[in-house]
C-alpha cells in the first residue's frame, strides 16, 4: 500500500468572541509516516491556519501539555504517529469534562486547585529523640520499598485521566484520578509520615468513595500510573480506619 499524500484532520473549534457557535474545521495536512499528530497540528498552525490554538511543549510525552480527545479518546497528540491514524479522518476535540478557553486549550484550574488538598508532598517524621539526635540523617529507602509507589510517581499531570472519568464529568467536586493517585503515591512511601493529614480529603464525599471504578483512567494513562488501582486501594485503607475508629474511639488523631 502506498502512503497517502495528505491526511484529513477535523478540529472542534471554539472562540470566546463567538461563544454560541463551536464549529468543526477540516484541514488536509501533508502526510509523513514518521510525523506525530502534534507535528500535524504545528503544520496547520505554521502553514494553513495561524488561528488554531493548542498547547504543547516537550514533544516527547513528558510535559503533559498536548492532551486532547483524538477520535473520542483522551491522548497526548505528541504520542500518536500519523501512520497509526491514516487514512483518517482524525477528529480532535478539547479534553472532555474541562471548560474550554479556546479551540483545543482547556482550563485546568480546577485540577490545580485540588492538588493542595491531597497533600502531595513527603511529611517527615515528627520530632523524636532519635530524630533530634541525628537531625540531618537521610531518609533511606530500599529499592523494594520504592517499588511500592514508583508507578504512582510517574504522573505528568496531563489530565487525560480526568477526561476519561465520567464520574468527574458528572460530579466536578470529585478530587479525581491524578490527584488521588498522588495521594496514594505519598501514602505508600516508606519515608512519609503524613497519612493522618491526608485522611480528611481521602474519606470525604469528594474523595476515594466518589470513584465507581470505571477504570478508563488507567487505560488512557500514557505513563502507566494506574490511578484506578491507587484510588481503590485507598478505599480499603479508608474503610479500615473507619472501622478502627468505631471500635477504638481514642485512636482518632
Amino acid at each position: 500500500m502506498t502512503d497517502p499524500e495528505t491526511i484529513l484532520i477535523e478540529v472542534l473549534r471554539w472562540h470566546p468572541d463567538t461563544p454560541e457557535a463551536p464549529w468543526w474545521q477540516s484541514y488536509e495536512v501533508p502526510y509523513r509516516a514518521d510525523a506525530t499528530l502534534l507535528e500535524a497540528l504545528q503544520t496547520i498552525k505554521d502553514d494553513l491556519d495561524g488561528t488554531l490554538t493548542f498547547r504543547w511543549s516537550c514533544r516527547m510525552a513528558i510535559c503533559g501539555s498536548c492532551g486532547c480527545m483524538v477520535n473520542g479518546r483522551p491522548e497526548l497528540s505528541c504520542h500518536l504517529l500519523l501512520r497509526d491514524l491514516a487514512p483518517g479522518p482524525v477528529r480532535l476535540e478539547p479534553l472532555a469534562h474541562f471548560p474550554v478557553i479556546r479551540d483545543l486549550v482547556i482550563d485546568q484550574q480546577d485540577f490545580l486547585d485540588k492538588l493542595p488538598a491531597v497533600g502531595a508532598y513527603l511529611v517527615p517524621a515528627e520530632e523524636t529523640e532519635a530524630a533530634a539526635a541525628a537531625p540531618a540523617a537521610p531518609s533511606r529507602q530500599t529499592p523494594a520499598q520504592m517499588a511500592d509507589y514508583y508507578q504512582y510517581a510517574q504522573c505528568i499531570n496531563c489530565l487525560l485521566c480526568y477526561s476519561a472519568c465520567p464520574q468527574y464529568g458528572l460530579k466536578p467536586d470529585f478530587l479525581g484520578p491524578a490527584a488521588l493517585a498522588l495521594m496514594a503515591r505519598h501514602d505508600a512511601d516508606s519515608r512519609d509520615h503524613g497519612q493522618a493529614g491526608r485522611r480528611a480529603a481521602r474519606d470525604a464525599d469528594t474523595g476515594v468513595w466518589d470513584c465507581t471504578l470505571v477504570g478508563h483512567c488507567t487505560e488512557v494513562c500514557p505513563q502507566g500510573v494506574d490511578p484506578a488501582r491507587a484510588i481503590n486501594r485507598n478505599k480499603t485503607a479508608s474503610a479500615r480506619d473507619y472501622v478502627f475508629d468505631l471500635l477504638l474511639p481514642g485512636r482518632r488523631r
Binding site: 476519561a164 465520567p166 477504570g215 487505560e219
Partner: peptide, 22 residues
Amino acid sequence: PLPTWQRGMRGWWRRDPAFRRY
C-alpha cells in the same frame, strides 16, 4: 475569570465502549 465553554454530559455512555462495558 476567562470566558469558557462548558460542555455537558448528556449521553456520556455513548462516547466510549469502555463506558458501556462499565
